[in-house]
Design a protein around this nucleic acid. Sequence first.
DNA 1: ACCCCAGGTTCCGTAAGGGAACCCCACTTG
DNA 2: CAAGTGGGGTTCCCTTACGGAACCTGGGGT
Lengths: 149, 149
Amino acid sequence: MQRTRFGEMACSIARTLDVIGEPWSPLILRDVWAGVRRFDHIQADLGISRKVLTERLNHLVEQGVLERQPYDARPRYEYHLTAKGTDLVEMLMVMARWGDRWLAGEAGPPVLYRHHACGQIGHVDPRCSHCGEPMHADDVDLLPGPGSA
Amino acid sequence: MQRTRFGEMACSIARTLDVIGEPWSPLILRDVWAGVRRFDHIQADLGISRKVLTERLNHLVEQGVLERQPYDARPRYEYHLTAKGTDLVEMLMVMARWGDRWLAGEAGPPVLYRHHACGQIGHVDPRCSHCGEPMHADDVDLLPGPGSA
DNA sequence: ACCCCAGGTTCCGTAAGGGAACCCCACTTG
DNA sequence: CAAGTGGGGTTCCCTTACGGAACCTGGGGT
């Protein structure tokens, strides 16, 4: 819904929500990441209304998260992640990790992540960019930054 | 809006969205994390309607992400993160990191994160839980897991 | 007895999602 | 060469959820 725009707030979380915070947007991104790139395929996979899917795709393209690319001489298009969008996938992996831990239940995680570098099944683990130690909720202090006006 | 429930999908991202995907929910979580814990304070800080704030807080409490705790003999309450909610903050940090990189502009990031372990300003960096190497969008293969029914 | 909070609840108007039908274009099949 | 098909949307109507403001309630304080 989001009738209030979050983009004006001095908060990177709010601004990020302005880009991918609308309902369905993260799932659309997930689909594109997983290789489901065409309008009808995404629509069928998610069960989203065509109207809303059009709106979301347009918004994600406008925001520079997706690119619309023709894949045929006919007017046929695929959506691809930009660098900006590829970077967002980290957020999806963290969301998936949380869902795996707290919501998956008996059955276990629906999807496994095999890491290219080591070839093993792993999950994403947030670490400090400076020292490499774990960086969780209680491991940080929040300080006003230069853009805190 | 989210009239379609995501929780039934065999996808941890969708299930996570069922918990914190509604508009405002991540910002409410951010406020509680940052120490803004009371109804009126959150309402004033976010500019959210009281009705929606009530709905969101109830939902987050039901989902076990927040706890409602009295802080006075009078009927006064504060909301606190549970372990489940504290674990969600990683997602907020990743969102903030993305917003800092791609949306902050000239002014720079509105908030800085000082890591307790090293005392330095850093940001969250996703790494493989198995080998500790970086784990970004292109560093993984997705495989069906046990709960993929 | 009166007012003042915090923490909601109620009501109404508007905007956004759901679903189905429809449209346009470029083939391709009979 | 007319009819069909399939991708990628657009249009329409209905229902639901948000925004905003007013109102309510229970326990103090003065």
